[in-house]
């Protein structure tokens, strides 16, 4: 019982970070209908921003979070404004391919500038734990989880309370809707993509605190983000949180009771099942 509770806690903490990873992907996918294969590369870049701020200037990764997000926002904004807008009305396959090309380029550049070595962001409190009801909770994971939840709620508030946010949501239903809110579509697209990239950047910064990073982590993170976005559904950010936590728990349980080599079978198997049985996500309306 104690073990199970510990596993569940690990899963939930992992899941919060997963949710933040997938949030940007789901936003871009849901609103712009772009499946961004470079999403994992964005997360990777966000992690490196955090890493260099920490190792060169000793800036705490949680303080560096806004910098990571800001940097990735700018990158995302520019990519959408000057590249992806050029093919906004092309068949979906072309957007899939171009983001794959972006992924290749970004990964290569990262390897050129950052080298292929594994890095970690290692603040003094990295090894700290505290115990709650007999369950051991690593401090950084709890902090990362809390930040992920705060950012998710912030996004949700932004999308529902602010004019630009509502324009973004309206665009998901109808591409021309941006104009009704007095926003130029090209800018709105860039803004949305930038926002998605910023969330990836934030997730990356936190990922660098809890795990090792190198330029090649992107592909696996993209795949994982997909799984979460699909399981949670694209409609609202809270679904993504549920999807992330669900996947985190499933992975922790599988690793313990079936074997660590089966983690991918479980997570992607569930993804396929959800796609086939409930294409709108676990929480979405039945098809």
């Amino acid at each position: 019982m104690q073990l199970l509770a510990q596993i569940l806690a690990n899963g939930v903490l992992l899941g919060g970070l997963y949710a933040l990873m997938a949030l940007g992907l789901a936003l871009i996918w849901g609103v712009l209908n772009i499946v961004n294969l470079a999403h994992g590369a964005f997360i990777m870049l966000g992690a490196y921003v955090g890493y260099y701020l920490f190792s060169l200037f000793h800036i705490d990764p949680f303080v560096a979070l806004p910098v990571s997000m800001g940097a990735l926002f700018c990158l995302g904004y520019l990519i959408q404004r000057h590249l992806l807008n050029l093919i906004a009305r092309a068949p979906m396959f072309n957007t899939l391919l171009i983001t794959f090309g972006l992924d290749v380029v970004l990964t290569y550049l990262a390897q050129m500038f950052f080298s292929a070595d594994f890095r970690t962001i290692n603040p003094g409190y990295a090894g700290a734990n505290f115990t709650l009801f007999g369950i051991t909770l690593p401090l950084v994971r709890v902090l990362a989880f809390l930040v992920a939840i705060v950012l998710t709620v912030a996004l949700w508030l932004f999308l529902s309370r602010f004019r630009v946010g509502r324009a973004i949501r309206a665009t998901a239903q109808n591409l021309g809707a941006a104009r009704l809110y007095g926003v130029e579509p090209r800018r709105l697209y860039a803004l949305t993509f930038g926002l998605g990239a910023a969330l990836a950047g934030g997730a990356g910064d936190l990922y660098g605190v809890v795990s090792q990073i190198n330029p090649y982590i992107g592909a696996a993170l993209t795949a994982k983000s997909f799984a979460i976005a699909i399981i949670g559904g694209l409609e609202n950010p809270l679904g993504v949180v549920v999807g992330g936590i669900f996947l985190g728990i499933v992975e922790s349980l599988t690793a313990l009771y079936v074997g660590p080599t089966y983690v991918d079978v479980a997570s992607f198997g569930i993804l396929v099942l959800v796609l086939i049985l409930r294409p709108n996500g676990l929480l979405g309306a039945a098809a």
Partner: peptide, 20 residues
């Protein structure tokens, strides 16, 4: 996209199954 993602996930599942 959904077909693309499903096949992508299947390929991950198959890799993991075969390696076991």
């Amino acid at each position: 996209h959904y077909f693309a993602i499903a096949t992508l996930a299947l390929s991950q599942v198959m890799t993991a199954i075969v390696s076991n």
